[in-house]
Amino acid sequence: MGTAMVITSGKGGVGKTTSTANIGTALALLGKRVCLIDADIGLRNLDVVMGLENRIIYDIVDVATGQCRLEQALIRDKRFDGLALLPASQTKDKSALDAERVRTIVAELKQAFDFVVIDCPAGIEHGFQVATAGADEAIVVTTPETAAVRDADRVIGLLEKSGLRSPKLVINRIRPKMVRAGDMLDIDEIVQVLSIDLLGVVPDDETVIAHNIKGEPTVLRNDAKASQAYRNIARRILGDAVPLMVLEEEPGVFARMRRLFGGRR
């Protein structure tokens, strides 16, 4: 029986889809069987980031409405045996899915996969309710901006209310130089406000965008800093105690993060 994780943020554009693709792929790299679900109905894009767009025949709405079997809609990633994608629908809208159907689909996928990673749409309306319905755990993605942190706070409140008790935090697109100059919220500050466990910090990395365009998750490359950060996140999900990586040659940041990470144990 696998674990279903929803990746959510409230605010759009903070990197939910990129994080879903990379965390999912990183777990597959570690030998786990992983199924990614794109729950952003109508704004399908996880398949694009994964480079699997041209192989879609059926989607999650077809499964939910009984037009095909679940196995028919699953796209196996050619790079890994254990990685699959259940794509969103491009044409139907969000009302085509309801929480009960998604719960059934996720429960079925959990039988066959170690991890089911659900990419949640932005916002806190119907799409969010549906995407979180079948999840056992939640990962909240935020960026070091006030608006993103505020929305993350709101989302954590909603997750806790719906019974997803201890969501984990991923801080995306951090720029150590800006943090040091005081132009960006620092990690310490964000973790204090949100008061949930920090799962990882992903540095802002231009290569991520380049890889997105090629349809290749960043974790498949060894040269990017973001790649290492996502691999570390995957290992922490599996229970390894991996220290937060040094984002730049600055001892202050490292010491601060280690303290943060140590504080929760």
Binding site: R150, D151, D153, R154, I156, G157, L158, E160, S195
Partner: peptide, 8 residues
């Protein structure tokens, strides 16, 4: 007991 979060 707990955090009063945004929107609550």
């Amino acid at each position: 007991r707990g955090t009063v979060r945004a929107g609550q």
